[in-house]
């Protein structure tokens, strides 16, 4: 009888799902509860931390939105993220195509070389990059990180997309060229639409790098109005040894949820982006 086996299988599957669901969902739940807690409730060690021992409050959100530049930081991050994504795509997509198709044996070697530059720790690049930022006169401007981040996103994205383009049979391009497209036309109308997964992966990768990075944003930008959300929340809600925990949690939650939703919408394509060529 296959029935009991199937029941066991379903139970095990759900146990695994629940286990990981709880572990991965917990930080978000914690952030959500903390956001609405009053300070005496939060700091009393005798209280059950998972429930509201005192009535919830919106004061922490008021602090976040009214007394910090939170919305400005979000806007800054979104803007910098978008520009970095555009720069990355404009440079990495054609570069990857050229390396995958047009350079013959040299392409692969060069591709590996490009990838190796990604392995250089960003902290090592810090001094030369800060000199470049200074030389360009971009200190304390959002543009400083917009100039710096593509130097991390482009090598990795180029390498990732190379694999993608290589997995598309050459015959398709040949067919498109015989069918009346130029090489450029075949690239734009055929290769790019067929690599949507890879391109989406690059978009998410570049965007999350901008929201995650701390060191560069912290050191290159000092004015509050020019900060990104990751740095702004951390520097302006931690004053000396005073932590505004509830507002910090609120800031993190609000910044994380949209990215989380985006990830989930494109999850399948994202996985495809990283596993292309793994089988076959």
């Amino acid at each position: 009888m296959a029935r009991p086996a199937r029941v066991v299988r379903t139970i095990v599957l759900w146990l695994v799902r629940i286990f990981f669901g709880v572990i991965l969902g917990f930080p978000f739940l914690w952030m959500l509860i903390t956001t609405f807690k009053r300070s005496p409730d939060l700091y009393n060690l005798k209280n059950n931390p998972f429930i509201f021992n005192e009535p919830p409050t919106l004061d922490n959100l008021r602090l976040l939105f009214n007394e910090t530049l939170f919305l400005r930081w979000i806007a800054n991050t979104a803007f910098a993220g978008a520009v970095v994504v555009v720069i990355t795509l404009v440079l990495a997509v054609p570069a990857a195509y050229a390396l995958a198709r047009l350079t013959g044996e040299w392409g692969t070697q060069l591709g590996i070389g490009v990838f190796l530059t990604y392995l250089v720790p960003p902290t090592l690049l810090f001094i030369p990059l800060s000199k470049i930022v200074a030389a360009l006169g971009l200190q304390d401007s959002l543009w400083s990180i917009i100039v710096v981040y593509p130097s991390f996103t482009i090598p990795f994205s180029t390498w990732l997309l190379m694999g993608f383009f290589k997995s598309i049979p050459k015959d398709l391009e040949d067919a498109a060229m015989v069918d009346g497209l130029t090489r450029w036309g075949a690239f734009i109308k055929l290769m790019v639409p067929m690599s949507t997964s890879g391109i989406l992966t690059v978009v998410i990768f570049a965007f999350t790098l901008v929201t995650q990075d701390f060191v560069y944003a912290l050191t290159f930008i000092s004015t509050a109005a020019h900060q990104t959300v990751g740095v702004g929340v951390a520097t302006f809600l931690v004053r000396g040894d005073v932590f505004y925990w509830q507002s910090l949690m609120a800031g993190c939650l609000i910044a994380a949820v949209p990215i989380g939703i985006l990830y989930n919408i494109f999850l399948d394509r994202f996985i495809e982006g990283f596993t292309v060529g793994a089988v076959k």
Partner: peptide
Amino acid sequence: LTPRERGIAMVFQSYALYPHLTAFKNIVFP
């Protein structure tokens, strides 16, 4: 001349159908 300027049509061993397009869109592609 480039392939597109030669006024030829080619059928490939793999057929090279565009996988993201329907049969109709494949046919009208040229």
